[in-house]
């Protein structure tokens, strides 16, 4: 069977737009100055909770740890009625089966990192096998990393082909492409990597693995959101966005929502098109929710460990 040709020919990636760093930073800082009233805040917090990919990606992960996290995903804080679940659990491929079983029919998705996460330093066939393994175990979403070394060497076609091959291996699973912006260096390169990923078939583009500092920042997310916007105008295809790493406070998460709303519009304000990759954000959101309800500042002692 012949592989379907892309309907839009990919552009020359060496000629992607240049980004005005000062302008981007100025614009990103503006989003942090919106006044959010209590009622909007409450809804915003629920939305944030519902957009979280609750993540555990550690060498010491065990079945028990993953099960515990899955329980938390379904029951974030039982003392609060009417709160949503998180969007997904994000784990290593070997933990997918455990997570899938623990989540059952709760509607919470299982995302698996793949392709020799987090370095991405492995041959293509191993990356593809890694991906297929995760999908066969039941992953609904795959988070892949791009080959940053090849990208910096200017081998954009290599990066493009790799993403396309992984996309094919994903089958029905949605593909998130991690650019690892902390290793890309400039906004120009972030923009270029975003364009490559989207043209190669990414369903989501994601900032970071969470293993490299800096991880997600508002300016870098803004650059990627603008890439998504331009891609949408050009092709009519919606691409999701997932900032990951370093977002641990509700206030910051709300700033991100403001940014998404003002750059991409309300269509993106669902967990189908926007996610937060985070582990400690969920508890902070829950603490803010209880604060709104009771008027008392909360203590982490009264919330489950994640």
């Amino acid at each position: 069977m012949a592989i379907a040709k892309p309907t839009i020919m990919p552009p020359d990636f060496a000629r992607t737009p240049h980004i005005d760093q000062v302008g981007v930073e100025e614009r990103a800082s503006r989003f942090t100055k919106r006044s959010i009233k209590n009622e909007s805040k409450e809804n915003g917090l629920k939305l944030v909770l519902n957009m979280i990919d609750l993540t555990t990606l550690e060498g010491i992960d065990t079945d028990g740890k993953v099960k515990q996290l899955c329980y938390k995903a379904i029951h974030p804080h039982d003392a609060l009625p009417d709160i949503p679940t998180v969007a997904a659990i994000c784990v290593y491929p070997t933990m997918v089966k455990v997570a899938k079983k623990a989540l059952g029919d709760s509607g919470v998705k299982v995302a698996s990192v793949a392709t020799a996460f987090p370095s991405g330093q492995a041959p293509k066939d191993i990356k593809i096998r890694d991906t297929k393994y995760a999908v066969n175990e039941g992953a609904d979403e795959v988070d892949m990393v791009i080959s940053r070394g090849k990208f910096h060497a200017g081998e954009y076609n290599f990066v493009f082909d790799e993403i396309a091959a992984i996309k094919e291996a994903c089958g029905n699973a949605r593909l998130k492409v991690i650019l690892e912006t902390g290793e890309l260096g400039t906004f120009d390169k972030v923009r270029r990597a975003s364009d490559i990923a989207m043209h190669a078939g990414a369903d989501f583009i994601k900032t970071s693995t969470g293993k490299i500092q800096p991880a997600a920042t508002m300016p870098v997310t803004l650059v990627m959101l603008e890439a998504i916007r331009d891609f949408y105008y050009k092709t009519g295809k919606m691409i999701g966005m997932k900032p990951a790493g370093g977002i641990s406070k509700s206030k910051l998460a709300l700033h991100y929502l403001v940014m998404v709303k003002e750059v991409l519009g309300e269509d993106w304000l669902t967990n189908e098109w926007f996610r937060f990759g985070a582990s400690s954000l969920a508890n902070d959101v829950l603490m803010q929710m209880v604060k709104l309800k009771t008027g008392q500042y909360q203590s982490a002692n009264y919330f489950s460990v994640d």
């Binding site: 008392q296 203590s299 982490a300």
Partner: peptide
Amino acid sequence: SWFVDHMD
């Protein structure tokens, strides 16, 4: 009142 109210 805030000094006494805070759960932490």
